[in-house]
Amino acid sequence: MNIQKSFQGERHTGTLYLVATPIGNLEDMTMRAIRTLNEVDIIAAEDTRNTRKLLTHFEIKTRLVSYHEHNKEASGPELIKLLLEGTNIALVSDAGMPAISDPGADIARLAIEQNIAVVPIPGANAALSSLIVSGLYTDRFTFIGFLPRDKKHAQRMLEQYAASRETLIFYESPHRIRKTLATLLDSWGNRRASAARELTKRHEEMIRGRLTELIEHFEQHQPLGEFCIIIEGLDDEGADQLKQAANSWWQELSLEEHVSHYEATMSRKAAMKQVALDRGISKRDIYNEINR
Rank of each mutant, 00 (worst) to 15 (best):
P98K: 06
T142G: 08
G135R: 07
G86M: 06
R149L: 00
P98I: 10
F146D: 14
A154H: 02
N88L: 07
P122G: 12
P98F: 06
A111G: 15
M157R: 09
E85S: 13
V92I: 15
I116D: 08
A90P: 07
I80L: 06
M97I: 14
Y137F: 05
I116G: 02
D139E: 13
P122H: 11
R109P: 09
L158E: 01
K152L: 03
I144M: 12
F146T: 13
I107P: 04
N115F: 14
I121L: 14
H153P: 06
A105I: 07
L110F: 00
K81V: 00
L83W: 02
A126G: 04
H153A: 12
G104E: 02
R156E: 15
G96T: 07
K152M: 13
I100H: 01
G96A: 06
Q114L: 02
R140Y: 06
A154G: 11
F141Q: 07
I100C: 04
S101V: 15
R140W: 09
H153T: 11
L83K: 01
I100Y: 03
A99T: 11
Q114K: 11
N115I: 05
L91K: 01
D139F: 03
L83G: 01
G86N: 09
P148V: 08
G96Q: 03
A105C: 02
L84Q: 10
P148S: 05
V118Y: 08
T87C: 12
Q160D: 13
M157C: 06
Q160K: 15
L128Q: 09
T87G: 12
M97Y: 00
N125G: 14
A90V: 07
L91R: 09
V119C: 08
P103N: 12
G123P: 10
I80F: 04
G123H: 10
I112K: 03
S93L: 00
A154T: 05
I132G: 11
L158Y: 02
K151Q: 10
I144G: 11
S134M: 05
A111H: 01
K152R: 14
K81M: 03
M97R: 00
N125F: 07
I100M: 10
R140I: 10
I80Y: 01
R109E: 14
P148L: 03
T87V: 12
L136A: 04
F141R: 06
P103Q: 00
G86C: 12
